[in-house]
Amino acid sequence: MKRSSVIRRAVLAVAAVTLAAGCVPEAAGSGGTRTAPPATPSTAPAPSSAAPTGDDKPSSPAPSATTEAPGPKARILMDDGDESARVRELQARLRQLGYFDRAPTGFYGTMTGNAVKAFQKKRELPRTGSVDEVTWQKLVAMTREPTADELRPATTNKLDAPDPRCMTGRVMCISKESRTLAWMIDGKVVSSFDVRFGSENTPTREGEFKVEWKARDWTSTIYHTPMPYAMFFSRGQAVHYSSDFAARGYNGASHGCVNVRDKGKLAVLFDQVKVGDKVVVHW
């Protein structure tokens, strides 16, 4: 074989090996021109940083154990203006814990709402003053079922703050909120009584009145029931003793009069009150 043929074959072999190994771009600073490799189609998945589109969008993550989804609005069990046996139980349970400082009346008024707010504040609940399921369950868990005496104690209801109209003169100051009558002279309480009012259909009128006339022994001309020690103040409505109130307590109601259940104390008051004395019926 000729020498030139041998040299040529050697050069071709070296070139073939170089192409098989692939060309590496020159390092920076070598003085040559860097040539990028040609782009080639790829079947590899897109990088995870690519934004998903269409059906590739991930679904919302499931809520964690510490995440609370917004729930429905709390259902109110008892609120201002309600009157029921359940409200009486609420008041008795609040009284066991020292939040309600008077005898239960069964009526949900301002004092009951304030007692509920105080309980809710202590338990770190929303201070709504209304009783929802959470408030009720916490109260029930912390108290025992009230006894009959706790629901309807024989003691006199605690007086609330007198209405400003009661602070001057001689006045029977009657509160529907605390269900009490305070006989007051020049702003001082002389005596006080538990009282009962009319039903929803025959309500006791509210406002400022005067004693129009008195009758030690009287029988209703409409209902034909005894009304001892009656002191009339508003078109047939009167403060008087009620044997039904004495027997059944707040299980019943009057036909609009202010019932008193302590006959002996009322007899003393009847002798003290004069025609023309003021009568204030308020919440």
Rank of each mutant, 00 (worst) to 15 (best):
P61I: 02
P226N: 07
R127V: 13
D101Y: 00
Q137M: 15
G256D: 04
N201S: 15
G169H: 10
A10H: 13
A51R: 10
R170P: 15
K214Y: 04
Q137R: 15
D56K: 14
R123E: 07
A238R: 04
A182I: 04
K210A: 15
D82V: 02
F100H: 06
P228T: 05
I185E: 13
L97H: 06
A148T: 09
R93M: 09
N114L: 10
G22A: 07
K121H: 13
V279M: 10
A247H: 09
A154D: 07
D244S: 14
T221Q: 10
L151T: 03
V189K: 03
P37T: 02
P70R: 04
L90V: 01
R144F: 15
I76C: 03
A28G: 08
E200M: 14
M142L: 15
S60T: 12
M1P: 14
A253H: 07
R34K: 13
H255W: 08
M227L: 00
S242V: 02
M111S: 13
T135F: 04
T43Y: 09
P47W: 05
Q120D: 06
T202C: 12
S199W: 07
K265G: 02
S42E: 04
A65S: 07
A161K: 07
A253T: 02
G29R: 01
M78R: 03
V211M: 08
G198K: 06
L139G: 07
D160G: 05
A69R: 15
R235P: 14
C166Y: 05
S175M: 03
M231N: 00
R8G: 14
V281W: 11
E133F: 14
M184H: 10
V273R: 00
Y99P: 03
A46K: 08
Y229L: 07
A15W: 12
N114T: 05
A44Q: 10
D194C: 02
R179C: 03
V239G: 04
V211P: 08
V260G: 01
E83N: 08
H255G: 06
S5K: 13
T18C: 15
A16R: 13
F193W: 02
P63A: 02
A118N: 06
V268Y: 08
L12K: 12
K214M: 01
S234H: 15
I222S: 11
L159H: 02
K138F: 10
V273S: 05
R165N: 12
P153H: 03
E68V: 08
T221D: 09
C23R: 12
K117E: 09
W183S: 01
D244E: 11
N259P: 05
Q120F: 09
R152L: 13
A28M: 10
G98F: 06
P37G: 04
R93K: 10
D277T: 12
F232Q: 03
P45Y: 06
P52R: 06
K2F: 14
T155E: 05
A103E: 03
P72L: 05
V140M: 11
D277N: 13
H255F: 12
S49M: 10
A39V: 12
T156F: 01
P164C: 00
